[in-house]
């Protein structure tokens, strides 16, 4: 027994191999004294990490542990997504397409709003009536956000204009959100147009000076 006791420190350190290891492990099964001594040595050994300053792990580690011990949560998320899709299937493909477009608009808006560099200004007409907001970043990109979708049978058309020059079409859109670039223009505007848009604005709604 004395010999085996002497192997305990190496065993606790994980340095024991082969026959000695097997012999000790067998003895440990039937000897409460050896077990007690091993626990004591391990308790001492595992105080060594206490000599190091503790370091808080990044929060993602706990999130991953949770994900791995509760695969149930992933399943619930999957089931919820499947239910939404099934529900949408009932409404038909067109509704799903609209839902998807709306989700894309929301995602785009969320991305813009989360950017601390973004500035904004109201899109309004000469009478001060507002139709929406334009968000922009200094380097040129901008996002036009209209309060309402266009009325049935109409589309919105975005325009850029330089002082003294005719307006340039930047594209048409049927939703409430349109991403474009204001660089090189003094004014940005929105008009209501028949489907497909027009070569020049027929029913201008509002504008935003860019400088």
């Amino acid at each position: 027994m004395k010999d085996l006791r002497e192997l305990l420190p190496d065993y606790a350190l994980g340095l024991l191999e082969g026959e000695e290891k097997a012999q000790l492990e067998q003895a440990l099964q039937s000897s409460p004294e050896l077990q007690a001594e091993l626990s004591e040595l391990r308790a001492v050994l595992y105080q060594l990490p206490e000599s190091l300053p503790p370091v808080a792990p990044p929060p993602r580690v706990w999130a991953q542990v949770q994900r791995r011990v509760s695969p149930r949560r992933d399943f619930l998320r999957w089931a919820a997504a499947a239910l939404i899709l099934l529900g949408l299937g009932g409404f038909g493909v067109e509704q799903y397409r609209r839902y998807q477009a709306l989700a894309e608009e929301q995602a785009k808006l969320a991305r813009w709003l989360s950017d601390p560099e973004v500035k904004w200004q109201l899109i309004r007409n000469d009478q001060g009536q507002t139709f929406g907001t334009m968000l922009w970043r200094e380097e040129g990109p901008c996002l036009m956000v209209l309060r309402e979708p266009p009325p049935r049978g109409k589309v919105y058309q975005a325009w850029g204009r330089k002082h003294g020059a005719p307006p340039v079409s930047l594209g048409v859109f049927t939703g409430r959100v349109f991403e474009t670039n204001y660089e090189g223009f003094d004014l940005m505007g929105v008009s209501l147009e028949p489907p497909g848009g027009s070569p020049s604005p027929t029913l201008p709604l509002g504008r935003v000076p860019t400088s």
Partner: peptide
């Protein structure tokens, strides 16, 4: 799982170190 969370709170900084 809340027990795991508490053990994680107690020991993850030392184990991570």
């Amino acid at each position: 799982e809340r027990a795991l969370e508490e053990l994680y709170r107690r020991y993850s900084p030392s184990l991570y170190a």
